[in-house]
Computed example of a mutant assay.
Amino acid sequence: MGDHFNSQSVDTTSGGEERGRDNAKNVDGRKRHIVVDSMGLLLAVLVTAASVDDGVAATELFARLEGQPISKVARMFADSKYHNFNLYEWVDEHAKWDLIIVRRPEGSKGWVKLPIRWTVERTFAWLGRCRRLSKDREKSVLSSESFVKLAMIQLMVHRLEPSKVDAEFHSRTAV
């Protein structure tokens, strides 16, 4: 299939580096940019001020994939926020994969489940279950990125060895 990337704006507490306003989301704080594989597992994370354009941040995020085991990736999926000619140029020069922009159906209003894009949104939902990530309380973006990684590690460990509570919950809610 391919990998997916997106960003999520989160409020921050007062102080710290890299803070800004995302007017589209009405958020004062930071933005978490992530790349996930087709199963929704984290490959890279970048935290910036919320005011940073997604297409600009994507080039730094993709640079963090260097050395990652993504050699078989042929396509990277993103939403229309990443429609950016500078980003296309960067991908052509540096990446071994194609950038595919998944667009909303023409004329659609409100929330629409986009094909393929739900994978990265589901990962943000998983991370959202971590209370520490409900708001960015960190002074540095390095700490913020580290807590995203720790939350993903915890999620993967729980998948390998689910707790009794998790197993009971999933058995009751299985479809």
Score class of each variant (00 low, 15 high):
M1E: 11
D3I: 01
Q8L: 14
Q8H: 06
S9D: 06
S9I: 04
T13K: 09
T13A: 10
T13P: 14
G16L: 00
E17I: 07
E18H: 11
R19P: 11
G20N: 09
A24H: 04
N26I: 12
V27G: 00
G29M: 08
G29D: 02
I34T: 01
V36H: 04
L41N: 09
L41K: 08
L43W: 10
L46P: 05
V52R: 08
D54G: 09
A58S: 11
L65T: 05
G67R: 00
Q68C: 07
Q68K: 15
S71Y: 08
A74N: 01
A74Q: 10
R75K: 14
M76D: 01
F77Y: 04
A78R: 01
Y82F: 10
N84D: 15
N86A: 10
E89A: 08
W90D: 10
D92I: 05
A95Y: 01
I100N: 06
I100M: 03
I101Q: 10
G107H: 04
S108C: 03
K113Q: 15
L114P: 00
L114K: 02
P115F: 00
I116E: 09
W118T: 08
T119Y: 00
T123C: 13
G128H: 01
G128N: 08
D136H: 03
D136P: 12
K139E: 12
S144K: 05
E145Y: 01
S146I: 13
F147L: 15
F147E: 04
F147D: 03
A151R: 09
A151C: 06
I153Q: 12
I153V: 15
I153K: 10
L155M: 13
P162H: 02
P162G: 07
A167G: 00
E168V: 07
H170A: 07
S171M: 00
S171D: 05
R172A: 06
A174W: 11
V175F: 05
